[in-house]
Amino acid sequence: MSEAVALHAPAIRRDPGKFWIVPPAALLVLLFFYPLALIARQAFLDDSGVANAAEIFRVLHSRFFLNALINTVTISVAATAGCLIVGLVLALILAFVPFPGSSFIARLIDTFIALPTFLVTLAFTFLYGSAGMLNTGLMEAFSLPLPPVDFLYSTWGVVLAEVTVYTPFILRPLLAAFSLVDRGQIEAASVLGARPFRIVRQVILPAAIPALIAGGSLCLLLTVNEFGIVLFIGAKGVITLPLLIYGKAIQESAYQVACIIAVVNIALSLGLFGLYRFAAGRLGV
């Protein structure tokens, strides 16, 4: 063995294969790390290019930043919880309640992943918006002067839209995990006297925990960074970190402030991504 290594060692030195790492690495540095580094650097410089670290503390303690952070976390946690619940219920039905066309439904829900997120928001506006079908219908039916349903233009509207958009991200890994659950175990549990609810809790869910964690952290990650939905709904006062960055950078040209918030946003994302990779690794995907 060691002999073989020794024989091949000189060959490796001349092996051009290892230089193939250079183009992708260079590309990565150029397109990804360099701009990130610029953002991080910009966070320490005021907009005339002078170092100003005190601004960081000011921003991090400011009302608008803390509000946006709280909004982001609230929306993302609520949406993820919603996705987990809806996804779990849907996955259980699709995987364990045999009905004709269940695989078609699963695939249909899957195609949601392919759609741009704001499209769903647009559809929501048509359905639940102040001039949407639900409100005009109710106004006509009960001759109301004002649209009675206005949850869409609030935190909950954003959460609902995000749940709709991101549930498939939970559904997919769950269905994969459920397809691996031995039907024999479910039957054994059933013969032993366990009712469906107990079977779900004690036999099916333990097998799905890695999938739930992986799907859940992916949802957290995506909802923390969600921009399109929040912007499209345009609920008054519902400002999240991505929206704040957009506002500061594009509308106010306050680049340092935007970059400081961006760094926080990136840190949050990377943390959640780490959680996702960890869970996905446990799941073996």
Partner: peptide
Amino acid sequence: LPPYERGLGMVVQNYALFPH
């Protein structure tokens, strides 16, 4: 009756023990 109300025991080829 559903299986869980029949008061039976069952053992199958692949044992189907609960792995966790």
